[in-house]
Amino acid sequence: MDFEQIYEQHFGKIYQYIRYMVTNAELAEDLTQETFLRVYKNTFRHEASITTYIRQIARNIVYDYYRKKALIQWLPFTKSHEQEEMIYVPHDWIVQSETRKALYEALQKLKPIQREVLIYRKIEELSIQETCEIMSVSAMKVANTQRSAMKTLEQVLGGERDGY
């Protein structure tokens, strides 16, 4: 399968995953571009399915960004604009529906790993096996994280409803 086909087939899901994992539109674009650039430059060795391979690259890039962000916050003498949080810009399609917006905002309040498990398991409805392969963790870990994520999500959404 050549790069064009891979790109056509996987762009949507990869961009969607990154868009839910980071809150900024421009950043999501950059990370998606970086993901496919790596796919383009690297040699696929058929050790996993191409889907798992691309998802793992996207995941590594997102987590690299988180690590860099965490590091910048701790660095002394860093310019103030580098320490500022990215501007929160949800996708237009999210904003169009109140339900989607509430759910998206609730998702952003979860830990990254919880959010990630919900993206794979509940949004994209991947199997536990597929999720394990992408995240390189055990099925037990996925199941436990999913349970805690759902509980937290219910609490966040419930709390907001009470607040209204």
């Binding site: 969607q16 999210i94 339900t99 989607r100 759910l103 998206y104 919900l118 509940k122 949004i123 409805e125």
Partner: peptide, 8 residues
């Protein structure tokens, strides 16, 4: 509701 978010 979560499954609906897959339709971005």
């Amino acid at each position: 509701k979560l499954a609906e978010l897959n339709q971005m």
